[in-house]
Amino acid sequence: MRFLKLYLQPLWNARLLLIYSFLSGFAILILAPFLMISLRSVGKGWFGKLWFPPELTLQWFQTAIDIGNIPEVLKNTAIIAAIAVAISTTIGILSGWAFGRRHLPGKEVLMSLILLPRMIPPITYALGVAKIFYGLDLVNTYLGVGLAHVSLCAPYAILVLSSTFESLDERVLEASSVCGANALKSFFYVILPMILPGILASMIFTFTTSYNEFTLTLMTYGPDTVTMALRTYLAIGDGYVEITSAMSVILVVPSLVILAMIQSGIQPEKLIGGFKGV
């Protein structure tokens, strides 16, 4: 034991260094593909085994926007995401209230049923959705693609909002009415400010889910409902690696914006009435 300690002591002394080198190694590993694609999107004449592109340019972005019809695609993406967010937040608020505030028999079974679309392989689920949506003429409509996304977004919304409502302290509501607030005033002055962060968090989650969703979009899209993720995939087939890279960098931008927003202002874990267990 003592022997072991003798040898481990230097390691222990250098533990901070070890931890940081491990973490930075990890970060590089995670970020390497992203770095590669970013470099590729601004590199010119980057072939062979060169470590760095010989020339930098922004022309691929211009080309991507021109031939990729990016403004139209972004508009589609935004509309579909808005539909998905609106519907799943509504579902989330209603069922979250039932899950979080009411005594619901069979709560666990219901919850796992709701989470089921997230558990089965996306392609299996998407094939089923496509079959149904073709029958209902929902394919290649905003509503159709949006609804397909809801099946993945709603579970998130329900999960986040049910714990938001669960953490709403009954006693605080009682305090509000003892203080003289009727139901309406209690809602606007007490309940709403307390659940707003949870609703916001749920909207952010559902937006990113819809924005990033690929499989379900692939099975339900049409020429009028191409989304950003899908457009990037389709660009691969066109064969211009640089343009595809530029597109995938554009694809990442909104996610980065949201991440920055969360980091700076609205830190979900610090918000009252936030969510636990997610």
Binding site: R171, E174, S177, G180, N182
Partner: peptide
């Protein structure tokens, strides 16, 4: 009479302050 019209003051075990 509903709670909000009873003109009471109350102190709660878990304080029940408005966190926001």
């Amino acid at each position: 009479t509903p709670t909000h019209q009873r003109q009471l003051g109350m102190v709660f075990q878990n304080f029940a302050l408005f966190p926001h």
